[in-house]
Amino acid sequence: MKQSAVDAVIRGLKRAGVSVVCYLPDSLFKELYPALDADPDIRTIRVTNEGEGAAICGGVFLSGKKAALVMENSGLRASVEPLARMGLGAGIPVVMLMSYRGELGENNWWAIPHGITMEPVLNALRIPYSVVREEDRIERAITDAYAWSYASYYHSAVALGGEVVR
């Protein structure tokens, strides 16, 4: 990611009021994670799998603070169980920011499953999402996701792809 895209993500998170970020690092967002760690206004929590991160974000919601789950899109598959339970069972929302691995242009065979499964899994869970491939749309996409999740009390997602991450 370019520094300007990293800055746009952090601006969007701050404008949305996020103060806690749970993440499991990946390669497409590799410049984002240290920037989040270094930001004095954001507490980062590193997790062992993205499902754990989703549940921690749910707990942060219950405290009145705003959290984000940042991950590769493969983490969505690891998060399905807690997302379904919290979102559909209790109305506890999680906002996710994920890198779009496996979209057209992907040149790693192991990432192809992530591209094939991401949107169908989001649709199966009825999670609205936006795919952002232009840097100037990042900030608005993030704040829109929070606005929607705090009106619906359900999950939403922003996937960053294309030139934003490659």
Binding site: A55, I56, G58, V60, L62, M86
Partner: peptide, 13 residues
Amino acid sequence: GCVTPQAFGLAAG
């Protein structure tokens, strides 16, 4: 699998 992670998120907040 969610209970202690949620409690930790609440504790962090």
